[in-house]
Each structure stands twice: as structure tokens, then as C-alpha cells.
Design a protein around this nucleic acid. Structure first.
Length: 272
DNA sequence: ACTGGATCCTGACTGC
DNA sequence: TGCAGTCAGGATCCAG
């Protein structure tokens, strides 16, 4: 489900309404996602206030007075505001109930590929975060970095972009979109890219993510942000999901292939 | 170290 | 209408 723009949008919208609120209770209806949900969630979070909501890669971090929670939305997860009268849907696994029960942050995840765990004292050292790659929107992600990181790598550039141990936040949608924008064929061996093409790709990754962010992310099925609003970037997608439709630049039919068991979309004319 | 494949799980959709 | 097969925004683990 969510890639960097969707996770970031989720964090921002939760911040807007939940910061400073105090946990009343936490209700878990299901104890197992990708990992077990901590059993002491309610006991420990009770009466703590939410101090910060931020993102690392595709992880959401909720910092409370004493503890920080690490949340991943997997493929199908969402974290959004619910009111006391909002009816429970199937797969609404966890409710963080604030104040005197007036507002709820609700975790929903049909496929249960997500996770909720304690982040520990120093979240950067958490095993799930410690080995992650660099943030694509940070200044340290440059064409030069990309050029050096891809040397001698035979893996397809699209798979390289999606490898969170190198570069985080770029998932299946935005990898295809950024490569189209850069005019690079997704099967190109990462190590074969010239310095110039690395510069261009780096720029295109940043632009694609930033534009998606300003549209509030992409809503393909049921993605909604922390307030419940859908994104609009799906309207801007140039290749993702457009199999056999004409390329918006040259009219050639968009192709769909598999890379690493995931669908890739590209224009065989614009991308070489 | 790198690379490709299987895997976790449910729901939506397609074709017979 | 039902049933089987395929596919889906992620990331980990394992074998070669």
C-alpha cells in the first residue's frame, strides 16, 4: 500500500489532530500482524501524551512521553482518525483511544503485513531500522551517491531503487514512475548506468516523490491519510497500471513485465 | 556479498 | 451463482 509519500502524508495528517493528546486506552482486537503486537501496549501507553509523529523509510514512529512506537503499514495498512461512533470495520486491529474517548487513531490492515512494536530507547538502533538505506529526499541522496552505490551491481535498476537497504521509501509505483520520467529502461543493469544518467535518475526520483507528496499520495484501492482523506497522485501516474494504454508522451503502448515477482510498467520507446 | 525465489495474509477481480 | 486462478502499494528469509 503505502510508499514514502503515503507514509509521510499519514504522519503529517496525524500530527495535525493528535499531537499533545493523551492516551486513554489502547484496544487490540488481534495480537498478530507480521510480528506479535506487544502485550503491554495498553498498560504502558495509558496516560502518555503523543509528543511527535514522524517517518523513517516507510515506518511511522509515534513518540509518546516515555515510549516510542514503531509502526509499518505493510501493503494494505492504514492509520486514521476515527470518532467514537465510527463503526468498526473488519480488520480494524488496534484503537489508540485519546483523551476521554473523544478521538481514536485506528490501525486497519486486511493483509496483516504490517507491524506494531516498541521502538526502544534509541529508535535508530532498532534492528528494523538500523540497516536501512538513505532517504531519497535528503541532500545525501545525489547522482554521485547513486553512481557509486550501483557500481558492479548487476541487479536491474528498478529492483535496486526498491531495495530499502540501499535507498528507502521507493516502492513499486514510484520506481516505475521515476524510471519513466528519467527515460531509463527498468531492466538496465544498475552498474551500467553512466554518471549522467545517475544524476538524472536521482533528480527524477526526488521530483516524483515530491510531486506525489504535494498531491497527498496515491490512492489505488483504499489508501487514506491520517484524517481519512484519499490522495490524488494516482491521476498523475504516467505508466503504473497503464498496461496497453498509449504512452502520454509518444503514444507507444505501455508494457507490463515482472521483476522480482512485482509488476513493472514502462514505455519501450521512451525508456532505453 | 549479491541475486532470485518463496513466503506471510486477505480481498478483489477475471474467466469458466 | 460458484469456484479456481491471478494479482495486489512490502520486506524478510533462504539457498545457490
Amino acid at each position: 500500500m503505502p510508499e514514502l509519500p503515503e507514509v509521510e502524508t499519514t504522519c503529517r495528517s496525524i500530527s495535525a489532530w493528535a499531537l499533545g493528546r493523551r492516551i486513554d486506552t489502547v484496544v487490540c482486537r488481534r495480537m498478530h500482524l507480521r510480528l506479535p503486537i506487544p502485550e503491554d501496549l495498553d498498560e504502558r501507553l495509558r496516560h502518555q501524551s503523543l509528543v511527535a509523529v514522524f517517518r523513517r523509510a516507510k515506518y511511522v514512529l509515534l513518540r509518546f512521553d516515555q515510549d516510542t512506537l514503531l509502526i509499518h503499514l505493510g501493503m494494505s495498512g492504514s492509520l486514521r482518525r476515527a470518532e467514537p461512533h465510527t463503526p468498526l470495520k473488519k480488520h480494524d486491529h488496534v484503537d489508540f483511544i485519546f483523551d476521554t474517548g473523544t478521538v481514536i487513531l485506528r490501525y486497519h490492515d486486511p493483509r496483516r503485513f504490517g507491524l506494531i512494536v516498541w521502538a526502544g530507547q534509541n529508535y535508530q538502533n532498532h534492528p528494523l531500522l538500523a540497516t536501512l538505506g538513505i532517504e531519497p529526499l535528503h541532500p545525501e541522496f545525489t547522482g554521485k551517491w547513486l553512481y557509486q552505490a550501483t557500481r558492479n551491481r548487476e541487479t536491474d535498476i528498478k529492483l535496486f531503487l526498491m531495495d530499502a537497504h540501499r535507498l528507502v521509501g521507493v516502492g513499486n509505483i514510484y520506481a516505475s514512475e521515476a524510471l519513466f520520467r528519467a527515460g531509463i529502461h527498468p531492466i538496465t543493469a544498475a552498474g551500467k548506468l553512466s554518471k549522467t544518467r545517475c544524476e538524472r535518475l536521482c533528480l527524477c526520483v526526488k521530483e516524483t516523490l515530491e510531486e506525489a507528496l504535494s498531491s497527498g499520495g496515491s490512492t489505488l484501492r483504499d489508501y487514506v491519510d491520517g484524517t481519512g482523506n484519499p490522495g490524488a497522485f494516482q491521476l498523475e501516474l504516467k505508466v503504473y497500471g497503464r498496461t496497453d494504454q498509449p504512452c502520454l508522451r509518444c503514444g507507444t503502448l505501455i508494457r507490463q513485465i515482472k521483476q522480482g515477482q512485482r509488476s513493472t510498467f514502462y514505455c519501450p520507446t521512451c525508456q532505453r
